Structures are given as C-alpha cells and as structure tokens.
Computed example of a mutant assay.
Amino acid sequence: MRMQFWKKTVDDIYSDNPPHQPVAVELWKAVKRHNLTKRWLMKIIDEREKNLDDKAYRNIQELENYAENTQSSLLYLTLEILGVKDLHADHAASHIGKAHGIVTCLRATPYHTSRRRVFLPMDICMLVRLLLHLKHARSLHKSVPVKAFPAFLQTVALEDYLKKIQQVNFDIFHPSLQQKNTLLPLSLYIQSWRRRY
C-alpha cells in the first residue's frame, strides 16, 4: 500500500500535480529545480517493493542489484542536483552505491540477528567484493569531475567501517563496531578539502 502511494505520488509530481503532503511538495520542487530523472525515483520504489518481505539475499549479486537500484539511484539523483552529467561520475556512483549497500547490510547484521533475522548473502566473497567496489570507484578519481565529489564523500564512512572491521578480524558482532567515530566529521572535512573521495 505504501509503495503504491509513492508510485502514484511520483507520477503526480511528474504530471505537475503533487499531493498536498510536505515531502511530496518538496520532492516536486527538487524535480522542477534540478530536472531530476523519474526513472531513478521509480527504481528506488520498485526495488523496495520487491524487498518488502525482507528475505535474505541468496547471493552477492542480489545484494548488489538491490544496492544499485537504491543507493546508486540516490547518488545518480545527487549528481543531477549537482549538475554533473558525466559517464565516469555515473560509473563511480554505481560502485559507491553497491559498496554502501553491502556495508549497510554488514552493519545491520547484529541488530537483525538479535531479532533472529539474517539478510547477509550466503556468498563468502562479500567483503572482497565490497573492497573491489570501493577500489574501482576510487580508481576513477582522475576521470570524475570535481563537482561530483560531494556526492561521493560517503566513501569516508564506508572506509572507516572497513578499517574497524579489519581490526577486529572481521567479527561483525564485535562491540567496537557499534561505537561512533567522533573524528569522522573531521575526516570528511579533510577529504573534502583535499578534493578526494
């Protein structure tokens, strides 16, 4: 029911008839101001609708597809807001979105297992694939327009989590992984200042 509401809302927004609902009105304004692509919004809704039953991912490819259609789609929209139309930036956004989706799945595992639910894909290559996505996105650094970098600063938080998990020998239940890094804002600032992601 909620997904049908959002599908209709997005259709109405692109028909210049947004519902009188605060989020819908703000989204309509953003669509008008930045000429946002409807396809990215619909991909997010469609993918969430497919995953409403919250089943575990059968393999890493399923998780990557979910991340591509949700996290990467959000990054594509962010690039549009920044006025970036660049193949290399889109390529980097794809890999960063996949890495973000995998890290989110990892980070949520202790919470989900405490409720007797598991969403991790059964593939054991998960961390290797995650590192490859980050590495690949960063290899595009020189090809990606600097204007796109703010959209990709989330890699700082992803890398922070990866370093922490490596320090505890990949024990996703280690209590230290639930602690916030108070220096993360500083790291974000430094990476932004250095124009790196």
Rank of each mutant, 00 (worst) to 15 (best):
E26F: 13
W28N: 15
M42Q: 11
H88A: 15
N65E: 13
H112Y: 13
I81T: 14
A56F: 00
D86W: 12
I45R: 07
L75A: 02
E49I: 02
G101S: 05
G101N: 05
I60P: 00
D86V: 10
Y66M: 06
W28G: 11
L63Q: 02
K29H: 07
N59V: 09
E26G: 10
M42K: 11
L41N: 05
K50N: 08
A67Q: 08
H112V: 05
A30N: 03
E26R: 14
N65F: 00
V31N: 06
H88F: 14
L41C: 01
Y66C: 07
D54C: 10
Y111C: 03
S114R: 10
V118T: 11
H88V: 07
D46W: 00
T104F: 00
Y111S: 07
V84A: 02
R115W: 00
S94V: 09
L79P: 01
R58T: 13
L79S: 08
L82A: 14
E47S: 14
T78I: 06
V31H: 08
V118S: 08
H100K: 11
N65D: 15
E64N: 10
Y66A: 00
K32R: 15
R33C: 13
L79W: 01
Y111M: 08
R33G: 04
V103N: 01
L41Y: 08
L63V: 05
T37C: 00
E62Y: 04
L106V: 06
G83R: 00
Y57S: 03
H91W: 13
E80R: 12
R39N: 03
L74D: 05
R115N: 03
Q61W: 01
N65A: 05
A30I: 01
I102M: 07
L74Y: 11
K55I: 06
R116C: 06
Y57K: 08
N35C: 13
S73M: 09
L27K: 04
W28F: 15
Y76Q: 08
K43N: 12
K50R: 12
A108H: 02
R116M: 10
T113K: 08
L75I: 09
L36G: 03
G97F: 05
S114N: 10
H91I: 05
K43L: 12
D90W: 03
I102N: 00
Q71V: 00
T113P: 06
T104H: 09
H112G: 06
E49W: 09
W40K: 04
H88Q: 15
L36V: 02
A89I: 09
L75P: 00
K98P: 08
D53Y: 11
A30M: 12
R39G: 02
D90P: 07
N35H: 14
K55S: 12
S94C: 11
I102T: 05
T109G: 04
A108F: 07
K43I: 05
T37V: 05
S72W: 03
L41F: 14
L36C: 08
Q61F: 10
W28C: 11
A67F: 03
A99L: 08
I96G: 03
D53W: 11
A56I: 04
K98I: 07
I96L: 10
L87D: 14
H100R: 12
D90G: 03
W28K: 11
